[in-house]
Simulated scan of single mutants.
Amino acid sequence: MSKIKYYYDSETLSYRKVERKKRHVFFRFIGFLAASMLFGLLFFFIINQYVESPALVDAKAENEFMKLEVEKANEQINNLAQVIAEVEERDNTIYRIYFDAAPISDEQRMAGFGGVNRYKDLEGFNTSERVIQLKKDIDQLKKRVAIQSQSLDEIAELAKDKEKLLASIPAIQPVRNQDLTRMASGYGYRTDPFNKTRKFHYGMDFTAPRGTPVYATGDGVVTRADANSSGYGNHIRIDHGFGYISLYAHLNAKNPYNVRVGQKVKRGDIIGYVGSTGRSQAPHLHYEVSKDGERINPINFYYGNLSPEEFNELLKKSQQENISLD
């Protein structure tokens, strides 16, 4: 029951009952309701600004976790891409060349995906750009792996028919590093030791003491072991098949040969001994490789018994334009 209120009327000098009008009550109610709503909105704004809800906290934590996972995935993709790039390089520069297979171009390996937008379903989100790029990198990596897998399958098929080729290619140094005095001269233009003119040197000269063993650089058949070729002195020629022939010149005058014509030899067999016969300035081995009748640089074949460091050192020495020994 509401209390009855009175006010003092100075004109009548008496207390009079306060009469409440309905419209006053209505306006007071509306004012109270508006103030309550304003206070509620203000409270809600403050809460949202400075106090995070559990759902928002979880969402932020999940977003941070996803960012870290994406960064880890990108790092793993970059590492895998580097490994695949190394395999691709060996595939093009070693495997496919050895088996007379055409290298796979970078354009073919790295080609993108044309046609429809493969990533449309990933658009429209805050993280769309990062996720789409990650998906593209993964798809690119999968394609490169697929191409490389097909290439290795092809090489494996070629290898079944070319095991003999691998054994036959003249792929080792004919004089062991520990027996060398030095690598005197390489393939290319050099100064002739006799007439001092500049002429093309078609082999490599390995300086070593007389009697140092000379090794067959690949499997094959001895086709010559004589001194009947101008300038070479005592020399040996081995036919390796597949168009490859190796020549070993200026062999020792005494006991120059450890093989005979028609004999089959294996890579690493001792076939003769270093000397200085024929057109030679000092004891050394002059070594040549021919492919299909054309003399080529022997240094391209020393993958069988040299470490990368030894090969690089030999390459530097062979490129020096100095005086040859024959």
Rank of each mutant, 00 (worst) to 15 (best):
I323N: 03
F200D: 07
Q173M: 15
M37P: 05
Y244A: 03
R176S: 13
K164R: 13
D153C: 03
F200L: 13
K21R: 14
F113N: 10
R190N: 03
G275S: 03
G218N: 00
R16H: 13
Y303W: 12
K60T: 09
A282W: 00
P209D: 05
I147L: 15
L33M: 11
P256N: 14
D9M: 03
N312A: 07
S280W: 02
T197M: 11
L41V: 14
L134F: 01
K72V: 04
Y98P: 02
E11H: 03
N297R: 02
G241F: 04
F44V: 10
L314S: 02
Y248L: 00
S318H: 04
I147Y: 12
D326R: 05
K142W: 04
N117M: 07
R237Q: 13
G243H: 01
D139G: 09
F301M: 02
G241L: 08
R210I: 14
L42P: 05
D192P: 09
A85R: 02
K199F: 01
D91A: 14
F32W: 12
V25I: 15
N312D: 14
E52Y: 14
Q82R: 05
M66T: 15
S10D: 15
A156Q: 15
S307K: 07
K199Y: 08
Y189K: 06
K160F: 13
D205H: 01
G218Y: 12
L80R: 07
V25Q: 14
F26D: 01
